[in-house]
Nucleic acid binder design. Structure first.
Lengths: 132, 132
DNA sequence: CTTGACCTTGGAGTGGACTCCAAGGTTTAT
DNA sequence: ATAAACCTTGGAGTCCACTCCAAGGTCAAG
């Protein structure tokens, strides 16, 4: 299939696919006599893999490394486990941080309808001498 | 005080402060006869405000708008409430998404030491025909 | 006085993941 | 045949929040 078809099959743009190829995520594809890229169905799979990994928050660099290991025919489970473990720890940290922030902001929002502007809880959020 | 002193007082770099001024977050400061920027203590407060709002995930553009309202002498509580409400909704969404992701990744990690590579749960994460 | 730290300006660079542009060739449907 | 959609390449632009560079002036301590 051609790049437009691959793009449609994966909800990506042709430019993005060309970008991925340049970034080393996709191998150089076969070409038509006119120089057009010619992809097989395995390219759809590969892009789905990339998209799945992106959903998990992996950067393209990480995904490229995983793909490189996979392409050698060796088992990518250990590197995948390493990446997943790292990502899990990052996610836990991120969730914790967001929950703290959420609590702070909810508290600020609760305090807003008060006669005075709220105390600057997370820093000088709103200047205390300002009266609402 | 001079820009270096203001930077030290706020843990920002002089370049960042100059950047904020250019981005409209800080008013043009007074100058020394040599052309150096001269700040009063209110600049520290203003930068603390900015830093606090950034911690909440607000972009500089949003903070600039809030500051502009504040600078007119009107009460910024309603715009702040709007921003906070919006940010709360965004945070809730983000937390939910991260928690779903976390669960998926934990499940994938649990499945990894199995004899076969796990089924591609979030998409073709790992090609099923690959055996570990 | 000397030297090093500090300051100025305009503008370019960084990171990461795309997206757009220009110029021109190819394919497909009417 | 024609026109529009599709494709190619190299390279620049976008987003956002900084950070760095170059060239030169100013300040403060020794």
């Amino acid at each position: 299939m051609r790049i437009g078809e691959l793009a449609a099959a994966t909800s990506l743009s042709p430019d993005t696919i060309r970008y991925y190829e340049k970034a080393g995520l996709l191998p150089d594809p076969a070409r038509t006599p006119a120089g057009y890229r010619a992809y097989g169905p395995e390219a759809v799979d590969r892009l789905h893999f990339i998209q799945g990994a992106q959903r998990l928050g992996l950067r393209l660099e990480d995904i490229r490394n995983l793909l490189a290991i996979r392409d050698t025919g060796t088992c990518p489970c250990e590197p995948a486990a390493d990446l997943l473990t790292r990502r899990l720890a990052e996610l836990d940290e991120k969730i914790r941080h967001l929950e703290v922030l959420r609590a702070e902001m909810a508290a600020m929002l609760d305090a807003l309808p008060a006669e005075d502007c709220p105390q600057p809880t997370p820093g000088t959020w709103l200047t205390p001498e300002r009266r609402c």
